[in-house]
Design a protein around this nucleic acid. Structure first.
Length: 421
RNA sequence: GCGGUCGUGGUGAAGUGGUUAACACAUCGGAUUGUGGUUCCGACAUGCGUGGGUUCGAUCCCCAUCGACCGCCCCA
């Protein structure tokens, strides 16, 4: 037997309806906010992620599915969506479109080579939003509120929106220098990861779990203290707009996003639900004003977020929320005998042509077995055909909820069913 | 990349170095010659993740491998 590859999953009937539901909900909400769907390839040139996501990130250093295709090109299965969307934005010159900012969303699988565990798959589905072309803090707030609205609309309660600002280039640079100066004397005492981080991406030292209690952490330079006037004001306005919309948040000066391209607004949405396991982050997002330019486009601001469908479904389960999924079948046709079988094929087809959901037996079961099958399918109505009924040009229609049944002529049957549903 | 627990039928599971691998649910058949969700009876693993090894003999012991779950790192 061949099983599926590690870290992947099959989504079978019973579960797939939930996926359809959340996808549909997300598409509807994006429509309400006037975001349009963009579909990009599942694989890209490796260089896109090296430049877009950043060479120092874990994603690029150890998690990418990279291979050489038959033409000798280095190809990578996309580990996230922002780089691809931005690439498409630049390639198709969407910065020249009359519609600005470009408000885009996507749904699709992402790939990261990691040890699978709860809430972490090698192939997982991300829903994401990107708004390119505006540096109005109101759009930061809009993007954040879209994510929160989505979760709220599904009934999630145990949510925590965590907010921070990483500042602009100048602020980040000053903070970076301060961090290096601050930690340098302690470098030997820090964990091996942090020793490396100090060289490559000192911001992430703040995020370290191992060195959390080190004395140097207590009075480490906070990015919020290094924001220049403009960055500080920007952050203030984002917070004000969130307040205007009634979106609650907490500021966490140690919130650092893992990818290199972030600046200014950074946020995460976490779940506080019991039994959610070690993973608490549902959504990560932020502003990336330099990315479009890094990828060869004109200087263009951008902000976005992404969340995984798997973690969303986990959060729903953790809060005991059942999605409203209709499993019932409209009608099931039962035939006894060859002639009735032929008639049931015809009637099933007619019902379907009229848009009535219909199914029938294909295992030559006896009446009892066919009724059981109808019952298992949660059929609302059963249409029974036998020799007696054929003689009368009629069928028995049985309401499976009440058990009541009556004989209906063939030429009235479809109308009868449609009225009863 | 590191650590821990585990792997028996469609499902949940019991079990032992030695002839027929419990039990329950589900499924199928029958009691009920044309009526479901109840009841009763019957059927249902040449097989115990995979590959080696030890042994007269292994599902049970050993090794390897694959996989699952959980945690770390990191992240969605």
């Amino acid at each position: 037997m061949i099983n599926l590859p590690r870290g992947t999953q099959d989504i079978l009937p019973g579960e797939s309806e939930k996926w359809q539901f959340i996808e549909q909900k997300f598409i509807e909400l994006c429509h309400t906010y006037n975001y349009k769907e963009v579909r990009t390839p599942i694989f890209e040139h490796t260089e896109l992620f090296q430049r877009g996501v950043g060479d120092t990130t874990d994603i690029v250093q150890r998690e990418m599915y990279t291979f050489e295709d038959r033409g000798g090109r280095s190809i990578t299965l996309r580990p996230e969506g922002t780089a691809s969307v931005t690439r498409a934005f630049v390639q198709h010159k969407l910065h020249g479109s009359a519609n600005q900012p470009q408000k885009l969303f996507y749904i699709g699988p992402m790939f990261r080579y990691e040890r699978p565990q709860q809430g972490r798959m090698r192939q997982f589905v991300q829903f994401g939003v990107e708004a390119l072309g505006s540096s109005d803090p109101a759009i930061d707030a809009e993007v954040i509120s879209l994510a929160m609205s989505f979760y709220r609309s599904l009934g999630l309660k145990s949510l925590r929106l965590v907010l921070n600002s990483l500042g602009d280039q100048e602020s980040r640079q000053k903070h970076r220098t301060a961090l290096i100066n601050h930690f340098k004397p302690y470098q030997a005492e820090l964990c091996s990861d942090c020793q490396l981080r100090l060289e490559q991406n000192p911001l992430r030292v703040l995020d370290c779990k191992k060195d959390r209690d080190h004395i140097a952490m207590q009075n480490a330079p906070k990015i919020l203290d290094y924001l220049n006037e403009e960055s500080a004001q920007y952050f203030e306005q984002v917070k004000q707009y969130l307040a205007v919309m009634g979106v609650d948040y907490v500021v966490d000066p140690n919130l650092v996003r893992g990818l290199d391209y972030y600046n200014h607004t950074a946020f995460e949405i976490m779940s506080d639900a019991e039994g959610f396991g070690a993973i608490t982050t549902l959504t990560g997002g932020g502003r990336y004003n330099g990315l479009v330019e890094d990828l060869g486009g004109p200087s263009t601001p951008g902000i976005g977020f992404a969340f995984s469908a798997e973690r969303l479904l986990m959060a729903l389960a953790a809060e005991g929320i059942d999605l409203p999924i209709d499993q019932a079948l409209d009608c099931y046709l039962i035939a006894i005998g060859k002639d009735a079988e032929r008639k049931s094929v015809e009637l099933t087809h007619q019902l379907r042509s009229e848009g009535v959901q219909a199914d029938k037996d294909y295992l030559s079961r006896k009446m009892k077995g066919q009724l059981k099958a109808a019952d298992r399918q949660k059929a609302k109505f059963v249409i029974i055909l036998g020799d007696q009924e054929l003689e009368q040009e009629a069928a028995i229609i049985k309401n499976m909820g009440t058990g009541a049944q009556e004989v209906v002529k063939f030429d009235q049957l479809i109308r009868y069913i449609k009225q009863s549903l």
